[in-house]
């Protein structure tokens, strides 16, 4: 499990090349900055199409959208073949490349337990093309392909529980984290760096343009997501051992997270109570898992 760090233990060295072309207040740009600080310079960064975040001072490899897992596999096997296993193989993908179009190849790479990092900046829609729904979009959220119409209002399906899905592959390490909790994020990378095999980190990365809130509130939004239980912070080792990293005495009501975001503006009281119930139920499962130290579905 990851070991807690404090703010003073966050590396000072910046590995991003800035300013970049991300929007003002981009959560993913911050995610990239924090992740690669902790990863360090000895890595090859892999890209598939996604919204621009932060460019980092790493050699870069890219391939087709649907191929994240295969690309990382190829690099890792190639490095093995030429005797350079010291180099870290890091994929920094969006939720589209993880939950949806890239899922198949990632699942196969997880099953083969390739020695790679898969890091997802989850902004809960296809933001690069202008906010279309993805498998990561939460229920009822408005996107440009789940509009608020007179008949259907927002997305009608729930978000995939991607961390548990990958945990079910029995991979050595998977964790969720958030740009609102940099110490948690960096502690998890630090731990992952000691693990050989498939490592995955799902980072909540609020998007002011798609979620429709003011860009200055990105961190506040991330924190509210965690504090309401909508975005729990946890880690799972070998598909089994479980730890909940953030456990407040009481969760805030989900409305505190939903209300400031215009993508949820149309929600009815009924919609909100459904989200509240879902969240409470999942939170109960997570608490129980934490108590047992073993993941429950």
């Amino acid at each position: 499990m990851s070991e807690r760090i404090n703010r003073l233990q966050i590396p000072m060295e910046e590995l991003t090349i800035t300013p970049g072309s991300a929007c003002q207040g981009c959560g993913a740009a911050l995610a990239a900055r924090l992740v690669f600080k902790a990863i360090g310079p000895n890595a090859i960064r892999h890209r598939i199409p996604c919204c621009p975040d932060s460019t980092t001072a790493h050699p870069s490899a890219n391939s087709v959208f649907e191929s994240g897992g295969a690309m990382l596999t190829g690099t890792w096997r190639g490095l093995k073949a030429i005797g350079r296993t010291d180099v870290q193989v890091v994929g920094f993908f969006g939720d589209g490349g993880t939950y949806d179009i890239g899922f198949q190849s990632l699942s196969a790479a997880a099953e083969r337990n390739e020695n790679i990092w898969v890091i997802t900046k989850d902004n809960e829609a296809y933001m690069n093309t202008g906010n279309q729904r993805s498998g990561a979009t939460p229920i009822f959220a408005r996107t440009s392909t789940t509009p608020v119409g007179s008949v259907i209002k927002g997305k009608q399906m729930r978000k995939k529980k991607i961390a548990k899905i990958f945990a079910a592959h029995g991979i050595p390490y998977i964790a969720t984290t958030s740009v609102g909790y940099p110490e948690d994020l960096i502690a998890k990378i630090n731990y992952g760096k000691t693990v050989e095999g498939f490592k995955m980190l799902i980072i909540q990365s609020p998007c002011p343009v798609g979620w429709r809130y003011d860009g200055s509130k990105t961190i506040a939004m991330a924190r509210l997501g965690v504090q309401t239980g909508i975005w729990p912070l946890f880690e799972i080792i070998d598909g089994e051992k479980f730890k909940l990293n953030y456990k407040p005495r009481e969760l805030k009501p989900v409305t505190e997270y939903l209300k400031p975001q215009a993508r949820f503006r149309h929600l009815t009281d009924e919609n909100i109570s459904l989200i509240q119930e879902d969240t409470a139920k999942e939170w109960e499962t997570l608490l129980k898992s934490d108590e047992l130290g073993r993941v429950l579905l």
Binding site: S63, A70, M71, G74, R77
Partner: peptide, 20 residues
């Protein structure tokens, strides 16, 4: 590398070729 489809087989060798 035994992969789950041709697309992945192709990308595996593409990436491996790139590192040498």
């Amino acid at each position: 590398v035994n992969v789950e489809g041709e697309l992945s087989s192709h990308v595996v060798v593409q990436a491996a070729s790139r590192v040498g």
